[in-house]
Design a protein around this nucleic acid. Structure first.
Ligand SMILES: [Mg+2]
Length: 468
DNA sequence: CGCTTCACG
DNA sequence: ACGTACGTGAAGCGA
């Protein structure tokens, strides 16, 4: 029985119709009425997709191999979902009480500052308070008036403390509603484990997504985020958490795909890529402060997204002209990247799609649109997909190999979570050192070529401690 | 259910 | 003149 599903076929071969209506498809294309019975229907679905993709031989061989990989991954994701991850419920509840207390204080502080009570969770009501009652200048217009998002409130906060308090309140409420209450609601009351659902077909680049709950956006950082993450832990003290994450994976992939010699050289020498870019931007002899490195880091990441001078200027809080200068300097110092991007756009125009190193495709109709803005947006998608998608292919292949490795031995350790460039395991103490070596070797070995991928591995008593 | 906001890589 | 960084999912509001 093949796990292959027609939705996988459509996912890998088409830009549209991700939520394909299978019964309509079968009726229209094959004059076949699918079964009303749920079980028979699912068998029909598997069978016809198998036939469609393999027997008709209309699919490019690299797509066939991606499809083969996706097919083999289905039971692996299913296993991870079924295993779930243990959560210390009492600890999570206690953190929630701390957050609620602090949030309540912020709430009262806000009412006190503006002299009235209102719903701070309502962006509309915040607009009225700030822009009508207090007469604060507006910035960007949105459908419902003027934005009161983080960027706008941070700017306002330079003059009006109320905006800063609202931001602090929002941060606390986000943590409480999504990560305390939200997670408490989905802990299995018997096993105390949380079981996400991985969506293998949703993301246009080939990434996974995670829902109900989303375990791919658990907050990270110090303070409450670390405390929340520390609630994810092994059930038994015989186990530790092991977190393995690819280091700078997208920039390394950009280096490999573009073949840019100075980007490759930087990684091969083991230099810090953000510091290297900072010296290109601010001079070889400049003292690279953390602030300059931060700017360079934003430039490096921005390039992966096809950022404009305007966009970068918002991120690093400078003028568009200055930001444009940084981007131009980046391309001048890493000329292979510019040439590579041009080749991607040429390919997108010629073929209508872009592809990852492994041949996974994304169709980008917008690159031929007559509307300049649609086209610019499509070009950013086209530039980003081969990078983000290759990273997705790499970690998926690694997961397949790790899963096979775990199956071969009768190990107690288990793979629990995937967060795009990171895998989370619970490992038995007796297997810990061996697992670390094997997991690193498998993950680093996936991608060929002269530029090695590097994997950072940390272990600890919980997800927070194992983040290094 | 659309909009807004914000959490992650 | 306009809009402006890729990819996701979830929560609260308000109609
Ligand atoms: Mg990383």
């Amino acid at each position: 029985m093949s796990f292959l599903d027609i939705r996988h076929y459509k996912y890998l071969t088409s830009s549209i119709d991700r939520n394909l209506d299978f019964s309509a498809f079968m009726d229209f294309e094959h004059h076949y009425q699918v079964s009303e019975n749920k079980h028979e229907y699912s068998i029909e679905r598997s069978y016809f997709s198998y036939k469609e993709s393999l027997v008709e031989n209309t699919v490019d061989s690299s797509i066939q191999s991606i499809m083969d990989m996706e097919s083999k991954l289905i039971p692996i994701f299913a296993q991870m979902e079924r295993t779930g991850v243990y959560v210390d419920e009492k600890k999570l509840r206690d953190i929630g009480e701390d957050i609620a207390r602090e949030s309540k204080n912020k709430e009262l502080e806000i009412y006190d500052l503006v002299g009235e009570r209102f719903n701070i969770n309502s962006a509309k009501q915040v607009q009225v308070i700030l822009f009508e009652k207090l007469g604060i200048p507006v910035s960007k217009k949105i459908k419902t008036g003027y934005t009161v998002d983080n960027e706008a409130l941070s700017l306002i906060g330079q003059k009006y403390e109320i905006a800063n308090i609202i931001l602090q309140y929002r941060t606390l409420e986000k943590l409480r509603s999504t990560y305390i209450d939200g997670l408490l609601r989905v802990i299995n009351p018997h096993t105390k484990r949380i079981h996400t659902t991985y969506n293998q077909l949703g993301a246009s680049t080939g990434r996974l997504s995670s829902e109900s709950p989303n375990l791919q956006n658990i907050p990270s950082g110090s303070g409450y985020p670390a405390r929340i993450k520390s609630c994810f832990c092994p059930e038994s003290s015989e186990f530790s958490f092991l977190v393995a994450d690819y280091s700078q994976v997208e920039l390394r992939i950009l280096a490999s795909l573009s073949g840019d010699t100075s980007l490759i050289e930087t990684f091969v020498r083991g230099e810090d890529i953000h510091t290297r870019t900072a010296r290109f931007l601010f001079g070889e002899d400049a003292t690279i402060t953390s602030e300059l490195r931060r700017i360079a880091k934003s430039v490096n990441f921005g390039v992966i997204y096809g950022i404009t001078g305007f966009g970068l200027s918002k991120v690093i809080n400078t003028s568009p002209a200055e930001a444009t200068k940084y981007i131009d300097t980046f391309y001048a110092m890493y000329p292979g990247v510019r040439a590579y991007y041009q080749s991607i756009l040429d390919g997108a125009n010629k073929n209508g799609y872009v592809e990852t190193f492994y041949g996974r495709r994304r169709y980008i109709p917008g690159v031929r649109d007559s509307n300049k803005m649609i086209r610019a947006g499509a070009e950013r998608e086209a530039i980003n997909m081969p990078i983000q998608g290759t990273a997705a292919d790499i970690i998926k292949l690694a997961m397949l190999r790790i899963s096979n490795f775990l199956k071969e031995g009768t190990y107690k350790s288990r793979m629990l979570l995937q967060v795009h460039d990171e895998l989370v395991f619970e490992v038995h103490e007796s297997e810990k050192d061996m697992m670390e070596k094997q997991i690193r070797s498998i993950m680093e070995g996936v991608f060929p070529g002269p530029l090695k991928l590097l994997v950072d591995i940390h272990t600890g008593a919980n997800w927070s401690e194992a983040k290094g």
